[in-house]
Nucleic acid binder design. Sequence first.
DNA 1: GTCTATATAACGATAGAC
DNA 2: GTCTATCGTTATATAGAC
Lengths: 218, 218
Amino acid sequence: MRTVDPAKHEAKRRAILDAAAGCFAMKGFEKTTTAEICRAAGISTGSLFHYFPNKRAVFVGIFEQDADETAALLAAAEQIEDPGEAILQVITHVSEQLLHPVIAKLVLEVAAQCSRDADLARLIQGNDRALRDGLVGLVTRAVDAGRIDPGFAPKTVASWLVALVDAPLSRVILEPDLDPAAELAVMKELIARFLRPVLSISPPAGGRVPDTGEISPG
Amino acid sequence: MRTVDPAKHEAKRRAILDAAAGCFAMKGFEKTTTAEICRAAGISTGSLFHYFPNKRAVFVGIFEQDADETAALLAAAEQIEDPGEAILQVITHVSEQLLHPVIAKLVLEVAAQCSRDADLARLIQGNDRALRDGLVGLVTRAVDAGRIDPGFAPKTVASWLVALVDAPLSRVILEPDLDPAAELAVMKELIARFLRPVLSISPPAGGRVPDTGEISPG
DNA sequence: GTCTATATAACGATAGAC
DNA sequence: GTCTATCGTTATATAGAC
């Protein structure tokens, strides 16, 4: 008779992951000790290695949860009739997460780690691409509906939308009294202006817009 | 009779800093050993501590050089008559730097370190603010000249311009075949659309733009 | 100023009792 | 499954000869 309760095991794994996320955000991967994670999770140092083979597996585990969340977010967005609204909802949700200092620190930490750990890089790349590909679908729908400018390829637009939510990250770290609501408002306006159909008589071609005399990209 | 040549001392300091920057970009702060820095710089482990009191001072030293470079960049931009052109030149220069993978890795590493080292954070914050404040001047000139939309405060615009050059950082790390020229082109277009004076009859107030039915920020 | 050699400290991971 | 105790490794920074 097995006394192991898989649900309980999974719950404890989650609890360790949560505790570890806080530690990694605060001190970074290398400087958080396994002992600290155990203390935060309320277990002893030996127990940690019953749930994870090593410290890196704990770190990676945190970001494996993201795939499910992203899938759920995209599935919800795809139910929205207005594709423009759907895009904004996705961007808003992701942005609001990233504007939390703890999340921002964790994201910067994982970005730094990715450049030196190919396995981790593949995981994060997969998460990023899932979000981007979901947005490609929504962008395509929005272009077809005439709601956004067809001047750029949907994939290019989607990539930049994902990049834009990362843009304020360093300010979240450096400027403690940053107002998340204000940042989000500017970002939405920035995106709206980026994507707005050009109001000129001649439709834009090849990513160009009519020269109206202001700052030009060329 | 002093045999010390200050110029030679400074040159060697620079050489160590250059070697260290490569190491830190490749392996991160904690995982690069002082021995590695010394090997890369062609000196022995004892000598390093003749030039820097400890490993962190080497890391910080890399970013102390940035202040001069930013000042020079802004001084050059302020000589340009057209403020829109000046803004684009600054953004382009900074962006081109950040699109190099080695620089990108170093920037992500320092961002991660900043969240845990108040002294380093102050240094980087100073560098960021110097760039931003220089841009505030250029933006103000451009608004007065009617070249960019007055809908946002110059400080807000300048902060976002600085943030925008950071936006592609994670993709630089995750997508090795990213085309820097293409990224820069999209970024310029994005900025142009963000800043373009609104073409409507009623001028925008309070950061709002006329509702034209597409994706809206509210 | 530059080198070799090393003191000292800390961490990740394991062993083995219960 | 969880604990305590500890091993082996590795790194920073210093000491002291030249």
